[in-house]
Design a protein around this nucleic acid. Structure first.
Lengths: 340, 340
DNA sequence: TTGAAAGCGCTAACAA
DNA sequence: TTGTTAGCGCTTTCAA
């Protein structure tokens, strides 16, 4: 910057002001132009480390996700990055693999890099790290999942609404024995979707015995396949299953296929999330679409609000939409011509 | 750090030495212990900005990819991050959306953040930005794609080998009229796979007229669907198509489905990449598996080599593997029982 | 083996 | 409107 100032014939303090949008107003228009021209000519790129050291702001935010290769997260991350980039921020992304220690480790590493705040997609309902982060005054926004105690602003999908829509669809088709392959009870999405399911069963006068809830230890195909297998090997298997997410649904479909049981002919399957490509599997998956990009974008905006001292909403619940495809039909019937 | 030094009863210079693995050897063992204990007790987290300002090293690398929501890239990014994290580095990820200006913009933004180097998955065969980066002495490693002129070390898949394997498979099944839905000619993967295809056609004594190459403007479903439609609407459509990547293949499958043409019964389809979930589509896609996580991990390691002054290999070509699934069978025959 | 001190590049409070 | 100056937190050279 000294070079720029020299070339423009001003003091570097002035150059700094001219180059910074917030302070450019304090500088004579012509001078500012001159400085900016000089900067351009010299290919000046401000040193973020120096700025950050001085201002205690890094214009960087940490993003913690379980695993980037889980197709659920890329759209969320893109949503976050798109909003951040526009505001001159960048994201530092870290994968925790659902490992608490790794999460703590990455969180500290990001703090050391002076991130201004965090967007966390790894929230568990009870979350010691987050309790501590709150005490430390960290700026955090939760996305997709939330904590039981409202520690931080969160942006989540309308999980209960999605379950209700899916149940309305299945019951409307005539299903009475519907099982729920629930996600982990330790995370909000798993718990909320499961309790919404139980509520629907009650509300609609279905039998709680016929409508079982099986808890999957993880949101993945392996767990879904195993749970579905258990269900099929038990007595009076259901005619429809509502799955905690699409990965579990994919596992359920696999279990069905392995046993030669037709879907949706014999058993209908509903997923949750509408992650990429579930419209291309066979049968195309009926699922609840969650606006993941929006989720991320909103979360980022909420964090920026906080960082700029604007009051941030405590909880945003984004609407979901049931997408009916080929994996659901009337019970015991033949597949409808709905698959793609 | 002053606090730590005070608590340990040493000068902050000494504290710095004690806390830094590289210089801890210069400090009396007992003193070092004392300092480290003090740091732990105070929950000391070093300020990366200050360190970076002083050392001109940020322990941060920029990662440029076209689009994180393209399922090809998350595994690459994870590979990069896994290696970087272990070495105490973090990745700053930016999406370019294949837009040259956006790429330049993000590249400069990352430079301003003092990244120590770059891993680029966005290389085009001719790449002005990279020529300039070379001139500027930037540390860069290319992944997945490469440039025509060997500007920087690259880690790519054995594209030609993959095409050869796929062709051997198709010809072995009896196909003689095989088309190639090529990716963009402007990127190395598109060009190399297409020229390998042409070479195979010649080598195997197939007719260059029967074995057309259609160039898709982008690596996506829309382009693949359109190209396949053109092929089917033309004269003497092929009995098999080798696609530039899986997304193009998915588009081709869609075009087939829309016309009620059986795959693999009437037309066999082969993809490239083996991206997640292509084993779950209908029919399960025969494709060439590229080790994406490895690609990313190697690229990161190569960059770290460069940053540490170790000589880095100029070009790593990682082996690929043909994965035969349900989308290929003998020409004009009925589908084999190979689908899953 | 440790202490002292300079300085990385920038911003902002203060003075002119 | 501009110049001056101190200092953000750290590393590293030099001296002791």
């Amino acid at each position: 910057m000294s070079d720029v100032a020299r070339l423009a014939g001003v003091h570097k303090g002035t150059a700094s002001r001219a180059l910074n949008p917030d302070t450019a107003g304090q500088v004579n228009g012509a001078t500012a132009q001159r400085v900016q021209a000089a900067a351009r000519r010299l290919g000046y790129v401000p040193n973020a480390a120096a700025r950050s050291l001085r201002t205690h702001r890094s214009h960087t935010v940490g993003v913690l996700i379980p695993d980037l290769t889980n197709p659920l997260f890329p759209p969320i991350v893109r949503g976050i990055e798109d909003v951040l980039a526009e505001a001159g921020y960048t994201a530092l992304i870290a994968n925790t693999d659902n490992d608490e220690e790794r999460e703590r480790d990455r969180f500290e590493a990001l703090r050391g890099r002076q991130v201004d705040g965090f967007v966390l997609a790894t929230a568990r309902r009870e979350h010691a790290l987050l309790e501590r982060a709150l005490a430390d005054g960290a700026r955090v926004v939760l996305v997709n999942r939330s904590t039981d105690r409202r520690l931080f602003p969160s942006v989540v999908a309308d999980d209960a609404g999605g379950v209700a829509d899916a149940m309305a669809h299945l019951v409307g088709l005539g299903h009475r024995r519907i099982a729920h392959l629930a996600g982990p009870a330790s995370v909000s999405t798993g718990a909320i979707r499961a309790s919404a399911f139980r509520r629907c069963v009650k509300t609609r006068g279905l039998s709680a015995v016929d409508c079982r809830v099986l808890s999957c230890p993880g949101y993945n195909e392996v767990a879904g396949r195993r749970a579905m297998a258990d269900l099929l090997d038990g007595e009076a298997p259901p005619t429809a299953v509502l799955c905690g997410n699409d990965l579990i649904a994919l596992g359920a479909l696999r279990a069905l296929r392995e046993r030669g049981i037709a879907c949706p002919g014999a058993v209908s399957v509903v997923g949750f999330n509408d992650m990429p490509f579930v419209d291309e599997v066979q049968p195309a998956l009926t699922t609840v679409r969650v606006p993941h990009h929006d989720l991320g974008a909103r979360a980022a905006r909420l964090l920026l609000d906080q960082l700029d001292g604007r009051p941030a909403a405590k909880l945003s619940r984004l609407p979901v939409e049931l997408v009916v495809r080929g994996s659901t039909s009337v019970p015991g019937g033949t597949p409808l011509g709905r698959r793609r």
